[in-house]
Design a protein around this nucleic acid. Structure first.
Lengths: 220, 220
DNA sequence: CGGGAGCGATTTGTATACAATAACCATCGC
DNA sequence: GCGATGGTTATTGTATACAAATCGCTCCCG
């Protein structure tokens, strides 16, 4: 995207991530234009992208709000993500080059280093983690898949970034990645799919635990 | 969406469907503004939506083109659609109300009527077919799913609408729908998933046959 | 003859002003 | 007192003018 709208996107995203605004809080395009320093036109472009990623939502009458993700929303999202990303892992297992596997190993080394810092560098962990998964999607060579997945991946991570990851959770993630790499090196699609499935399902529970226990039927 | 941009969206879509423009042909926002009778601002909004649905694509330097779907693109799309829509069928089987099942029956009656006209009314068939699948997605009660699927469903149908469907193909579709309804009435998720899977996979082959035989490795 | 720099024309991106619509609030009628 | 109704303000939608980028051509130089 072009300069101003890309900048608006990044700034608004950072603004949401900073915790300066709360879920369900109303925003206006004017206000965002002030914050980002560009006019409403590129802001609208950026907002549309953020709506697509479900970080922002519009009310029935077009008013703009910070998205509020319930536990059920998060579960639904992880279920879909699991479906798509398991497929990606399967395809990637057939296609990953030696270089790409090397890249995954390097990223996971970085990820581990981020964990073992004191205190653990969660931001660095998340970056390495994202890059890791992106390599897999890239290798799956399915453009449509690459277009669909980001919409699912971004939202909850950004909105709940303040939460605490336990060191054990982080280490388990790293181990999952190790096993994924092993499955890829063996070019075994079934193995890769299975590992990715358990990896993401565990990630969901880790995530959900922090958000709150399973809700029975409450709305909000 | 608001009036002008919605209108622009509909007109551009109709324009693509009419065959007045060919795949890979360049379009300009100005030209589309002329055609739709609104200014470039809402046109840009509409174009973004059509890009999202992969009916339009932008070159690396932001120029706008009519999308060109290769056979491989279509196969990829159907594979993803199958994955998601089987999931939807499974969920729908657990949730569909008696009224919704009644609605599906009515839609399939209409679909059959469209087939048995002479000549068959393909547009009416496609409308009923779309409505049928939308009821299922609605019943799946998965907002994210409802957001993802339209992006996959629209594009190839619109772009290849001129092609001929054989009466046998259409009748087989109607039979698939009958069996789906039976699976829903029995509230059997596994059955529903299986029927949806074969329904869509057959639809892919019907579709692909008209586009051209499986290409080995050709690019374009 | 080929390749690249420069320039005019085309196309997309951004800012701004204004129009349309929705929310808010106070007042009126019952 | 309570709900409907009108006017006022806030917010989003659209048109338009202008800026930036890109394309395609010509012309020049090697």
């Amino acid at each position: 995207m072009s300069r101003a709208s890309e900048q608006a996107y990044a700034k608004i995203r950072a603004h949401l991530l900073s915790g300066a605004v709360k879920p369900s809080e109303q925003l206006t395009e004017d206000r965002l234009a002030q914050i980002t320093g560009v006019s409403r036109t590129p802001v609208r472009e950026a907002v549309r992208r953020l709506e697509d990623e479900l970080l922002l939502v519009r009310s029935d009458t077009k008013r703009l709000f910070v998205a509020d993700w319930s536990r059920d929303d998060i579960e639904e999202m992880f279920t879909l993500r699991q479906m798509l990303e398991c497929h990606a892992a399967e395809r990637a297992a057939r296609r990953l080059s030696r270089e790409q596997i090397g890249a995954l190993e390097a990223l996971n080394r970085d990820l581990k280093a981020a964990i073992e810092q004191t205190p653990p560098d969660v931001a660095r962990f998340l970056d390495a983690n994202r890059a890791f998964h992106e390599v897999i999607i890239e290798a799956a060579q399915s453009p449509r898949l690459g277009q669909l997945l980001p919409k699912l991946v971004e939202a909850p991570v950004v909105l709940r970034t303040a939460r605490t990851y336990s060191p054990d959770d982080l280490r388990q993630s790293a181990r999952d990645h190790d096993e994924l790499i092993a499955a890829f090196a063996a070019h075994d699609p079934d193995w890769a799919r299975a590992v990715m499935g358990s990896h993401l399902r565990r990630a969901f529970h880790t995530f959900a635990r922090a958000v709150g226990p399973a809700a029975g039927k409450n709305e909000t």
